[in-house]
């Protein structure tokens, strides 16, 4: 096998391990942050500061009884958690988590697959995540699960549209669909959060809805639907839904950073003369910058969950179709006029 293949395999392994590790520790972070917000201590028994809690939780999930309802559609009931996990873990393949790192004398790009249609790939794969929720809800043969599944499919379709449309001004300005190209445009010019605040707002709201996080977690609203689509799930199947949701959250945070906050670029510091002949240090700086920015957004996801109440279902649909969709269309029009009128944008 040629070395390029080995490097790609290595990158897949690293990204996979990092994502799953972050997912495990996100569950701890969620409980710790919520505890701080609610003036509690949170889990602090397993390991120092509760640091071994995710391992204990994982073991607990493995040893729980895997209960399948008698009237459930067995095959689809088992398939649904996989349909949630797989797309959630796939999307990270096209997110650039650093520039290049010299390893064994080779410049290794810090991205698994630098596709020419990177951002469309993310939307395509992310739109498949809804099948897990819908199929899981339907196959359980339980009315609460079914309602959760129906809600999730309606919600995902509604917010996917404004999410996709909110990114179009960015594509128009940077003139590329490649995520590395979008990051480099921001490195050379300005971050998109400064030049396109409205797109940023629309994208963040839609990604909260797409990841089923509060204030948009209607598919599993526990006061009305018991547990929503995962009411009839237990053991590792439930854990798969749980992990998929957190993996989606990580991808959403990484995407917000990549599209609006300059990705791995750290302005001013990365232009220091010191980095001109220390390529490895610069590469490491980029990777660490990206991780730090993503961590900030993960914290914001948790912070919002424990601060805001849940929407009502009709409010959710109204916001999606009557506010976000028209706003995103107007947003495209405004930036189209700006780009044409002032000759901005990177289209060559």
């Amino acid at each position: 096998m040629n070395p390029a293949l080995w490097i790609t395999l290595g990158k897949i392994l690293v990204v996979f391990a990092l994502t799953l590790g972050t997912v495990a520790y996100m569950t701890l972070a969620e409980r710790k942050v919520s505890a701080i917000i609610q003036w509690r201590k949170g889990p602090n028994r397993v390991g120092i500061w509760g640091l071994l809690q995710p391992i204990a939780d994982g073991l607990k999930f493995v040893f729980k009884e895997d209960y399948v309802p008698q009237t459930a559609n067995k095959a689809l009931h088992a398939l649904a958690p996989m349909l949630t996990m797989a797309p959630a873990l796939m999307t990270f393949a096209v997110v650039p988590f650093g520039s290049t790192l010299p390893i064994f004398g080779m410049e290794v790009k810090m991205i698994v697959a630098d596709l020419s249609i990177g951002i469309l790939f993310i939307f395509a794969i992310a739109s498949l995540g809804v099948y897990g929720l819908a199929v899981g809800g339907w196959s359980s043969n339980n009315k609460y699960s079914l309602l959760g599944g129906l809600r999730s499919s309606a919600q995902m379709i509604s917010y996917e549209i404004s999410m996709g449309l909110s990114v179009i001004p960015i594509i128009m300005m940077s003139g590329t669909l490649m995520l590395t190209g979008i990051v480099d445009w921001q490195g050379n010019h300005l971050w998109f959060v400064i030049t396109q605040p409205l797109s940023f707002l629309l994208f963040v709201i839609s990604s909260f809805a797409e990841t089923n996080r509060l204030p948009f977690d209607l598919p599993e609203a526990e006061p009305e639907l018991v547990g929503g689509f995962h009411t009839e799930y237990s053991s590792m199947k439930f854990a798969s839904f749980f992990l998929g949701e957190y993996a989606n959250m990580i991808t959403a945070s990484a995407l917000i950073v990549t599209l609006f906050f300059g990705g791995y670029h750290l302005p001013f510091i990365e232009n220091l003369a010191f980095f001109d002949n220390h390529g490895f240090m610069l590469g490491m700086l980029h990777v660490i910058t990206f991780m730090a920015k993503t961590a900030v957004w993960l914290f914001i996801f948790i912070w919002v969950r424990w601060s805001l109440p849940r929407f009502r279902y009709d409010q959710l649909m109204g916001l999606g179709w009557k506010v976000l969709l028209p706003l995103s269309l107007v947003n495209i029009l405004i930036y189209g006029i700006i780009i044409l009128g002032f000759g901005l944008g990177g289209t060559s």
């Binding site: 939307f123 739109s127 995902m156 996917e160």
Partner: peptide, 17 residues
Amino acid sequence: VVQVAVYAGAIMVLFLF
């Protein structure tokens, strides 16, 4: 990608709905 996003990701979700 458009095949997956439009047919698998949107139209078939509506069918399933």
